[in-house]
């Protein structure tokens, strides 16, 4: 129901502004790179040590020394810079990365995020997520509205181990664009063909419907 992951990425791409330095997490966020408007200049940061991340290489240009934080082969661009992991997280903590987009397993109406561990089941680790959510000025979560069991991922309180507290400002899902304001989810936009009732039904946390709620622009 609602958007596929490419459409979620496309909708989030509209949040990027000229001159932004942006860190895109693994999964749906990575796809955003394909939809960045051609008339603005956005520089992608990859936390393993690259500013100015370019597209995937052509087959004959694959370089094992050039990967992104998702361990995929990538390229540099004109104007790229390479650096160490310490420098990379220095610029993140310093607040120079304007926007971070990452996936999540749960988001609470307080803006808490959980995305690194399912006790007893999955132990992958937080990677750079805790550093990013603790320091980025603007953080958007890209995820499906419900999990595989059909349970809401937008909750009053996170049930899984926390990645960061009070840090998420916006969530874009297959169903909706939701802002987090004053300890509440606020529905700003609904996906084409998805009713507000369906979004209310799929949201466990407190959801206020914005007076200006409208359909997402996916053009």
């Amino acid at each position: 129901m609602g958007l596929n992951k490419f459409q979620i990425a496309k909708r989030i791409s509209k949040e990027l502004k000229d001159g932004d330095y942006v860190n895109l997490g693994i999964g749906i966020p990575t796809l955003i790179a394909n939809y960045i408007r051609k008339d603005i200049s956005v520089i992608l940061q990859s936390e393993n040590g690259l500013l100015g991340m370019g597209p995937f290489p052509n087959k004959n240009k694959i370089d094992p020394d050039m990967i992104n934080a998702g361990k995929e082969t990538i390229t540099t661009l004109s104007g790229s810079a390479l650096f160490s992991s310490a420098e990379s997280f220095g610029m993140i903590r310093r607040g120079r990365v304007n926007l971070t987009v990452l996936g999540a397993m749960e988001v609470s109406q307080a803006g808490d995020i959980a995305n690194w561990k399912i006790p007893g089941k999955m132990v992958k680790g937080m990677g750079g997520a805790m550093d990013l959510v603790a320091s980025a000025k603007n953080i958007i979560v890209a995820m499906m509205h419900t999990n595989k069991k059909g349970h809401s991922k937008l909750l009053k309180k996170c049930t899984l181990p926390i990645t960061g507290l009070n840090c998420i400002k916006k969530v874009v899902t297959n169903l909706a664009v939701i802002d987090i304001e004053n300890n509440m989810f606020v529905l700003k936009e609904h996906a084409p063909g998805v009713s507000i009732e369906e979004i209310v039904e799929a949201t466990e946390g407190e959801l206020k419907i914005s007076e200006s709620v409208c359909e997402m622009d996916l053009s």
Partner: peptide, 17 residues
């Protein structure tokens, strides 16, 4: 998960620093 191996997970930036 079987307890043979210990692991300490650390945020990546903290690990680097």
């Amino acid at each position: 998960l079987s307890g043979e191996l210990e692991v300490e997970l650390i945020p990546q930036g903290t690990l680097a620093e």
